[in-house]
Every structure is written in structure tokens, then in C-alpha cells.
């Protein structure tokens, strides 16, 4: 696996995490479920990437965290978007759209 690939996948996961947190705060497990759900089970989130990604985003100041109580009354760590994270999400979304359009264009060229 080359470095470029890792970066791309990592970046994508980061964007998806930001997206799932756009509406409400969520814990790690919830995030993984959401991504799976929203992608109609196409994307399986590897836990080995998810938690490091959450710590990374937090270090970058894009998300914050706080211990709270889950739906079934369990103590869980909830992540939420920061203002910086919201801006970042908008930018990444635009970026992604440009990239995916470009890739699609290439693939559709006969």
C-alpha cells in the first residue's frame, strides 16, 4: 500500500466522521453505525481507523468530546463538531465533489 492511498482513505474517513456529527453529537460506536447505515452497508468502518481518527480530529480542533449518558443509560464519550470543524466540513465537501466529478468524468470518457 502506498502512502498516497492511505492519505486518501484517511482523509475520506475524517470527512465522513465530520458529516455524521453535523446534526448531533455522537459516540464512537454510534458514528460507525451511522456511516454504515447512511452508506447502506457499503462502507464498513474499521474500528482500528475510527478511534485514531477521532483522536486526530480532536487534536486538530475539528471536534470536541465530552462524557455523557447514552440512550440506554451507559456512560459514553460523545463527540461533537466545533466551529472550525463545520468550516472544514464545508471545504472538504466541496473538494470531494470536485474530485468525484473529475474521476467520474474520466471514467465515463470512452
Amino acid at each position: 500500500m502506498t502512502k498516497a492511498n492511505v492519505d486518501l482513505l484517511q482523509g475520506t474517513l475524517d470527512m465522513l466522521i465530520l458529516k455524521t456529527l453535523q446534526l448531533e453529537a455522537q459516540h464512537g460506536w454510534g458514528i460507525s453505525q451511522r456511516i454504515q447505515q447512511m452508506s447502506k452497508d457499503v462502507l464498513q468502518v474499521n474500528q482500528g481507523s475510527l478511534y485514531p481518527a477521532l483522536h486526530r480530529l480532536q487534536r486538530q480542533g475539528l471536534i470536541g468530546s465530552e462524557w455523557g449518558t447514552s440512550d440506554n443509560n451507559r456512560r459514553a464519550k460523545f463527540y461533537s463538531l466545533t466551529a472550525k470543524g463545520r468550516t472544514q466540513l464545508v471545504a472538504e465537501k466541496a473538494n470531494w465533489e470536485r474530485l468525484s466529478t473529475a474521476v467520474t468524468d474520466i471514467l465515463q470518457t470512452v
Binding site: N46, G48, P52, A53, L54, H55, R59
Partner: peptide, 18 residues
């Protein structure tokens, strides 16, 4: 099994932390 190598993930988290 789904979660994978727990210790490895923890290390990875620690590496990402400030």
C-alpha cells in the same frame, strides 16, 4: 473480531494524541 487488535488500536490512538 470486528473490532480487531484492541491493543494496536489503543497504541494508534495514543500516537494520534497530543
Amino acid at each position: 473480531i470486528d473490532f480487531g487488535a484492541i491493543q494496536g488500536h489503543k497504541e494508534a490512538c495514543r500516537d494520534e494524541r497530543q
